[in-house]
Design a protein around this nucleic acid. Structure first.
Lengths: 241, 241
DNA sequence: AAGTGGTCTAGACCACTAT
DNA sequence: TAGTGGTCTAGACCACTTA
């Protein structure tokens, strides 16, 4: 009872039955004042414990109502294989946010081996499920690639994939590199996804290549709770040695 | 000034210069009491703001000393391609934690299409950099696959990959499926990685297949700050339609 | 009207670090 | 020894939900 802070002790008392499935999702937890009374701690301690569980994603706070065991979130799997590469938000409903011509920033410039400030098309698209935003796809593509054709991101059918669109423009995509990580949400993303800035998000930085030349790059930003990535790889070559 | 809670306002005052690079990594921030005085808020508010920045990974608290802008963490990239599949912690130093024979739990049983309670080898391995743990790899493999041979995970050289080891035992791995997500750390993992339980971690659930038969599955659990996954896929087939 | 979560104040003690 | 972060107490007001 000594080394352990009390709010961790209270949190563990609640965490155990939640993880064991003894509290069904949707169950209302004791209120912070009731928790404080029954466990003989101050209200700040019970509050701290509950906020911890909220930050862990186990519990949801409904102001004015109570703390509830979170329903198991619906998980959306973004499928990747070595033979397809569609739009960024495949299993979801898409809400297209349009295409702009912008000057490329230095981070994206590096990914496309462009000069800082070169013009690119930036295309945004929101993946939603039951009307709720789940993932945000932002793609950048050099203007010079398709300028003057009807295959620019702005002109083409927004539902068509990059591979088809650029393929029709004579640019064959034969390689894709995806870098997966987690980072806090920044501002334009957070409000589009209706999440708080600073919350962690799963991020896929994907770059399509024609040989050694990068021709399109995009960020897929998805809420950590709802998004998973599924990579199906065939190990074609038999093992040597 | 009205709708916005004050601790968010204080946090934003500090977050901006950190993200803009105006505070160099390692810079000490004003202490919580100094922050409270200079911004005319209570100490709880400055504390709340600082804890928020800590939870976002921007700031590090050193008890007794102060709050410091976090040094940019060294990032380790776990490389995946469609022609290789080594041990789980490739770019790191490995610390082998041994192999046990255990009865499989239901989650892993499902991944290996075993019955709940069937015997499996469980092999653990810690990936470290500069002595600090970065990622934990836990692999499960049905005992029946290699029983009686010298190709069990317990007998073989721990440095050898699954593909080579099982290949030598006559089991050809030709497919791998990886599911990537983020979830809170659970207990045995958290202490091995020297992180707090409940903190989010990047998780790769990888399953190796021989045709339709899963022959080995593993979890790669890495700290969100230090780990990234790099998938290099070649889109061999030209596009049709 | 009562209860709830979100926020806030004004204190306090401890173990630790820095000097 | 002074300052620091971590934890804790005992209050309080507000907007909101619930009944």
């Amino acid at each position: 009872m000594t080394g352990q802070p009390r709010y961790l002790w209270v949190a563990e008392l609640l965490r155990r039955p939640i993880l064991n499935g003894e509290y069904a999702p949707g169950t209302r937890l004791p209120s912070r004042s009731r928790l404080a009374r029954t466990h003989h701690v101050s209200e700040q301690v019970s509050r701290h414990a509950l906020r911890l569980l909220v930050s862990e994603g186990l519990v949801e706070a409904r102001p004015g109502s109570g703390y509830y065991v979170r329903p198991v979130p619906q998980i959306h799997r973004f499928s990747r294989t070595d033979r397809s590469s569609g739009s960024g938000v495949d299993p979801l409903d898409r809400e297209d946010l349009g295409t702009l011509t912008v000057r490329v920033g230095d981070l994206v410039a590096r990914r496309l081996t462009l000069r800082d400030g070169d013009p690119v098309y930036r295309t945004r698209c929101l993946g939603t499920a039951n009307g709720a935003p789940v993932a945000l796809h932002t793609a950048w593509e050099p203007v010079v690639l398709t300028q003057g054709t009807l295959r620019t991101p702005a002109d083409a059918d927004p539902g068509s994939g990059v591979l088809d669109r650029l393929g029709a423009a004579g640019v064959i995509i034969d390689r894709v590199v995806e870098e997966v990580g987690v980072r806090p949400l920044r501002e334009p993303e957070a409000s589009l996804l209706k999440l708080a800035p600073g919350r962690p998000a799963l991020v896929v930085e994907r770059t399509h290549y024609n040989g050694q030349r990068p021709v399109e790059t995009s960020d897929l930003v998805g809420s950590v709770e709802h998004c998973r990535l599924l990579y199906r790889l065939s190990l074609a070559r038999p093992q040597r040695r």
